[in-house]
Simulated scan of single mutants.
Amino acid sequence: MDALASRSADDEVALRVGIVSSMPVGLVVGRGIVGVPTLGEAERERLITLVGPAVQSVLVPGPRAF
């Protein structure tokens, strides 16, 4: 049973890392490749301020809503 719980925890960590790593990729694509005007015009520090809490919420496990 412990091995199953450990694997589940490892899967959860891998999923969280995948989600977090896709967030800056999305910003880079939106700003530099697609050219979303609001992203391109935003200051880097403003984007960090807005995205930081979202990244933190994915990385730090909290109570499950389901």
Rank of each mutant, 00 (worst) to 15 (best):
E45Q: 05
R44C: 04
A42T: 06
G32Q: 08
S21M: 14
T49E: 10
L4M: 11
F66H: 12
A9I: 09
G62P: 02
G26I: 04
A54H: 01
G62A: 15
I48N: 02
S8R: 15
I19M: 15
S21D: 07
A14W: 03
S6L: 14
L4P: 03
G35H: 03
V58G: 01
D11W: 12
T38A: 10
T49I: 04
E41I: 01
V20W: 01
S57A: 10
A3P: 03
L50C: 04
R64E: 15
P53D: 02
G30I: 05
A3R: 12
E12F: 11
R44D: 13
V58A: 01
A3L: 12
G18C: 07
V29L: 15
G30N: 05
G30H: 01
F66S: 12
E12K: 12
V34M: 07
D10G: 08
G30M: 02
L27A: 08
S57Y: 04
V29A: 10
S21A: 13
G35F: 04
G62Q: 08
F66C: 05
S22P: 03
L15Y: 08
M23I: 15
D2F: 14
R44T: 13
T38Y: 14
G26H: 06
D10P: 01
V20A: 07
P37R: 09
V17A: 13
G32C: 02
I33Q: 00
L15V: 11
M23L: 15
S57V: 01
A14Q: 09
I19H: 07
G18V: 07
P61W: 02
M23G: 03
A3K: 11
S8W: 09
L15T: 11
S21K: 12
P53I: 04
V28N: 07
R7D: 13
I19N: 08
L50V: 09
V55P: 02
T49Y: 04
M1T: 13
V25P: 04
L15D: 08
A65D: 11
L39A: 12
M23D: 00
V36T: 09
P37D: 13
R46N: 07
P24K: 09
M1K: 14
V55E: 01
D10V: 11
S8P: 00
G52S: 08
S21C: 11
I33L: 12
P53A: 04
D2Q: 15
E45R: 06
V20I: 01
R31A: 04
E45P: 05
M23H: 00
V51A: 08
S22M: 13
R44L: 12
V60S: 10
G18W: 09
T38D: 11
A5M: 13
G52Q: 03
R44Q: 09
P37N: 00
V36M: 06
V51N: 00
V25C: 07
M1H: 14
L47C: 06
P37W: 06
V34L: 11
V28G: 05
R46Y: 04
G18Y: 06
V58C: 02
G18A: 10
F66N: 14
S6I: 15
P24H: 07
T38N: 07
G52L: 09
S6A: 15
V58Y: 00
L15F: 14
L39S: 09
D11V: 15
V51L: 10
A65H: 11
V34W: 08
A9P: 05
V29D: 02
I19E: 07
E41S: 08
V34S: 02
R64L: 15
